[in-house]
Design a protein around this nucleic acid. Sequence first.
DNA 1: TAGTGGTCTAGACCACCGT
DNA 2: CGGTGGTCTAGACCACTAA
Lengths: 267, 267
Amino acid sequence: MHDMMATRTAPDPASELQAASAANPSFSPLYRQIKGLITRSLQQGDWKPGELIPSEADLARRFGVSQGTVRKAVDELAAEGLLLRRQGRGTFVSTHHEERVKFRFLRLVPDATVEGERPLPQPMERQFLECRRARASQEVARTLGIKAGESVTQIRRLLLLAGEPVVFEDIYLPGPAFRALTAERLESYRGPLYALFESEFSTRMVRAEEKLRAVNASAQEAQLLRVREAEALLLVERLSFSYGELPAEYRRGLYNTRHHHYRNELN
Amino acid sequence: MHDMMATRTAPDPASELQAASAANPSFSPLYRQIKGLITRSLQQGDWKPGELIPSEADLARRFGVSQGTVRKAVDELAAEGLLLRRQGRGTFVSTHHEERVKFRFLRLVPDATVEGERPLPQPMERQFLECRRARASQEVARTLGIKAGESVTQIRRLLLLAGEPVVFEDIYLPGPAFRALTAERLESYRGPLYALFESEFSTRMVRAEEKLRAVNASAQEAQLLRVREAEALLLVERLSFSYGELPAEYRRGLYNTRHHHYRNELN
DNA sequence: TAGTGGTCTAGACCACCGT
DNA sequence: CGGTGGTCTAGACCACTAA
């Protein structure tokens, strides 16, 4: 029977869990509470990106629940992209250091891309135009959930695909966490920006929201992206969140969609 | 133990299922086979959109498996949006006739929309400019997986939000299924286009792929959307699929993103 | 071979819904 | 109240990986 308080021979951690009961209106199922505990461990850095977390059987023992309950919690976290299951090996904390998930957040693909094919085998080059400390504008502050005038790190860069400039973007990072970030470090780093943030700034981007618009290129934007002035560009504003729905990056990118498009799936 | 062929006292349908075994390289887990059988029933129209499907216990008996196995199959189909579970009532076939999911495929929201809020309480008006039979062009044919020159139904329409024209799109429907569709029917129908297709043309759109680009408005497009010529517009090409990954609609829409934006979530 | 996640079962009880 | 999906358990065996 499922009556935790009475029958379960649970170790310490389980005592935090609340029994299901009609008397408790703010009831949350066990597996969801387990999910919360695991998420907390991820936030606290108990298990770091790329690392192996304890086995299901182990977690079940620790939490004083059945393996099936842990399984359901881990299943959902894996579906949300926080964890990665590998049969025979164990469950790992997701990371941006992985060939598999290199371009998880960049939805731009060459027009030639065939459906179902893995896109972007194109050579990609990055040019960092700027990396400086600045004061948050009204807009940037509101988006990042900080106060206007607070310090942010701003990066301005250009992405080139097959030698052609395709993306021009400004990136805003809140707070003092990124104070040590320099243009030199950006230049020398091989791999995705989010992998760098993860390894050296303890900030893992978990999910993001994007707003897309079409805009006419300004003179400066046109020059950088080598298009005519007033040519249509895709404006992509991205707000990325770290663990716990914490806004951790705001990005404003202009995409030249003459030979590339933004790919999306609707379900 | 789990040895179907020997121990299960299964009714007829279960005999189609294949036992798991190392000897069978093309092995698929039971719940996935169940999923396939349910999907087939949906395709065949055994259970129509909006209808109640048999209970888990019932399906388990029919297929000769445990309720847990059926549950896993239904869980996945619900996650994919094919089924809708309602506690205490049963499991229903998803439909486009539902307040909840009215704008599942239209990602355009007003700029004022606050995160987490339900968008589009705006009054929406539709103007159908055209509805005719035509021959598929090279491009349309290739996209829909038919031969160039075959008959398609073409709809041209305008969407107005808060009185302003915001979307101008051409819609292409393959084959003879939509031969009976007329401009009058489109005008008189209340509710989403996909609901009409579902009720009267036995075509349910299950998922879609979109390609987004920014383009400069032509003279005609500018006039229809009431913007300046060459103003940037968001071009959205959508390929919708019915049950069984069947391409069922191709749509080419131009969005005026001056006061609206295309909203997307990245996980 | 030992340990991991993946599948499957059987059975219990709970939360929710309509009658 | 009976029927539905939702949660939880305990235990079995399979598939995969690494030592």
